[in-house]
Computed example of a mutant assay.
Amino acid sequence: MSSEIPFCEAARTLVRRPEVAVPAKSCDTHAHVFGRHEHFPFTPNRTYTPPEASLEQYLELHQMLGIERGVLVQPSVYGTDNSLHLQALRQLREWGYDYRGVCVVAPEVSSTELKELHEAGFRGVRMNLLFRGGLQWNDVLGLADRIADLGWHLQFLINVSDCDDIMDRVAELPVPVVFDHMGHMPATLGTDQSGFRKLLRLLAGNRAWVKLSGSYRVTLQDEYPYPDVEEIARALVAANANRCVWGSDWPHPHFSGLMPDDTDLLEDLAVWVPDEEARKRILVSNPVRLYGFDD
């Protein structure tokens, strides 16, 4: 491995039970697992090298938090090789858990592979548009057409504050679009930033979804708490609470700051969404609609 590729710190292992009520069938819609490096090799042109983060560790976290469902999102270090999360979802099903996945595929992915992924529980394709120069908009359109009949969505890793052209074209897509990490915009730009306002309009018009996740990635604070994120999160919920879901982003890869506490991240939801019924929709019923969980 190249010494120029930074190694990631492992997630915290000591997690306390949350003090806020976590309703039954709550869902963590954004997390990753990382296998043993010799069994699941990383792509050479990655931007980070994560430590192992096992499926068993992920389940232990959920048991402590009171989370019963989850969504595994393909991380960039594996490129379009979804075999680790494919194996994980099959294992979870054997163990009696109800989890889903979001994959990364090439525009020319075969229908056979899409069918295999769907049968395992994948329900979306993640598209990394945070760094330009890779995917073109025609690739986005092509994949959207391919997955529409499956009932899947596209998940965008994008900074909404510097992608006005993409934000203007989201409504033309034939599938739902989910925005990672509250739009991945620095919180200091505020809720009046033009790209963020476009995100709010997409939410209000039922044209998009957003993950209330990654607060530690968009804050300007060096450590918890992240008060500058509260206005951003509240604005998203106010735009359309029925289009918001929550995610831990465990085990927090490619992050060089102070490792967040997953219980803090879950309890922040009570600060952003004081209404208990709205929180229940965000944790339970909204993921049912987006990922096809059983009621």
Rank of each mutant, 00 (worst) to 15 (best):
W272C: 00
R46N: 10
E113L: 13
V102K: 01
T29V: 09
D180S: 14
D295M: 10
K198I: 04
A144N: 03
Q136T: 11
R93P: 07
Y58T: 12
L269M: 08
E119C: 05
Q57G: 15
I147R: 00
L61S: 06
E230W: 14
G247A: 08
L117E: 03
L199K: 02
V237W: 06
T49C: 15
A270I: 01
H30Y: 05
H254T: 11
G134F: 07
N45I: 00
D192V: 08
A270R: 01
A233E: 11
H32I: 05
A120W: 01
A238N: 10
R93E: 14
V178D: 09
D81N: 14
G151D: 08
G134V: 09
E277A: 03
R90D: 15
D149F: 14
A204N: 13
H85D: 15
V245T: 09
L59D: 13
T80R: 06
L141A: 07
Y97E: 11
D139F: 02
L55M: 07
L202S: 09
M127W: 04
N45G: 03
R289P: 13
G121V: 01
P260R: 15
L266S: 05
R234V: 07
R207T: 02
T13F: 08
A270K: 00
Y78E: 12
W246F: 10
Y78K: 09
D275G: 04
E277G: 00
H39D: 15
V22R: 00
L236Y: 03
L212F: 07
M1G: 13
M1S: 10
D164W: 11
G151N: 04
V73K: 00
G292T: 06
Y58M: 13
V15Y: 07
L236Q: 13
P227G: 04
R12C: 15
S213F: 02
N45W: 09
E119P: 06
A31R: 07
V170E: 09
V229R: 11
L61R: 08
L141D: 09
L212C: 10
D165Y: 03
D222S: 10
W250R: 07
D268H: 15
M182Q: 11
